[in-house]
Every structure is written in structure tokens, then in C-alpha cells.
Computed example of a mutant assay.
Amino acid sequence: MSKTIHILNGPNLNLLGKRQPEIYGADTLADVEKACAELAADLGLSTELLQSNHEGEIVEQIHRARDEAAGIVINAGAYTHTSLAILDALNTFEGPVIEVHISNIHAREPFRHHSYISARAQGVIVGCGVEGYEFAVRRMATLLA
């Protein structure tokens, strides 16, 4: 039985491929899900991708991951910069956490430069486009080995 990675996505990521493609690219969240699932399978893992525009639902997804996942890959979107609740939930999760951002948050508006999630993450991948999710799955495979 393979270990499962939960890939959690925050607000507006359901619009990936449609919203600001000059920043986020043309790939959709379904494209990300497919690429990660295929890569994970090659690495002996499985993935479950979840997205919500609601902070509380992301917290609930992290709580579910405590019983269902070996690791979490998270792109919390704007909640990255504002949510102590998501950080607190991640602190209850015992496995590794990798933070992903499609754009380079450090080259954007100053309010995006701080991440609450980084305090919990074993790794942070920024500015690599949607390929950053695949980098995160690869890194997670190493951490779980």
C-alpha cells in the first residue's frame, strides 16, 4: 500500500489556468493533479488533491490528513500570509510539510513576502510555476523514504 500525500490548495487556485495566466500560467488545477498523481505513482506514492476557498475547510482538510496522509504539500494562496489557524493546524500534523507557491512571492507585493506556513514547512518552493508541485512531490518522496 502506497503512502498518500495530501496536496492542499487555498483560495482562487480553482481558477488556475484562467486567472492571471501571465503570473500563474495556463495549466489548470486538474493538470497539476494529474501530473502529481502520475509522478507519485512512479515514486511508489499516491496523492489526494483538495482545494477550498474557505480557511476553515483548509483547517479541516489538515485535520483529516492527520489520519490519512504521510505528508502534506500546501499552497494556501493568500492564506499563506494571514492565517495563524492554518499554521496551528499544520503544527498538529506529525508528517512533513512542503509549501509551494507558483509565483515568486518574494518578487511581488511586500505583504506577500511573509509566510506563516514557512515556520512549519520542511521545504518551501517558490517561483517554479506549477512544476513546483512536482518538485514538492519528489522532495516528499525523499522525506518519506
Rank of each mutant, 00 (worst) to 15 (best):
A107W: 00
P11F: 07
H114D: 13
L143C: 04
P21W: 07
Q20K: 13
P11G: 09
P21Y: 07
L87Y: 13
H63C: 02
I62N: 09
S118R: 10
P110E: 14
H63K: 07
L43P: 05
H114I: 09
Y24K: 01
A65C: 05
I5Y: 03
S118G: 15
Y79P: 04
I74F: 08
A65Q: 06
A35C: 06
H114L: 12
G56M: 03
N9G: 12
T28C: 05
R138D: 13
G132E: 03
E60Q: 12
N14K: 00
A145P: 00
E60P: 00
C128Q: 14
E68K: 14
F111A: 09
G123M: 10
N53L: 04
A78H: 08
A136E: 10
S52N: 09
I72F: 07
E57D: 15
G123Q: 10
S46D: 14
P11W: 04
V137A: 07
I86C: 07
H106T: 06
E57W: 00
V100S: 08
A141L: 02
E109N: 10
A30L: 09
A30T: 13
T80W: 04
Y116K: 01
S103F: 00
N53Y: 08
T4D: 05
A65S: 14
E33Y: 02
Y133G: 05
G127Q: 06
H106E: 12
N9D: 12
T82I: 13
R139P: 01
G17A: 05
N104A: 00
I23L: 14
R138E: 15
K3G: 11
E131F: 14
V73N: 07
Q51M: 03
Y116C: 09
E60Y: 08
H63F: 11
T82C: 10
A121M: 11
A69D: 12
D67A: 14
H101M: 03
D27V: 01
A40T: 08
V32D: 13
S52A: 10
H81I: 04
Y79M: 09
R120L: 12
G123P: 07
Q20I: 12
G95I: 05
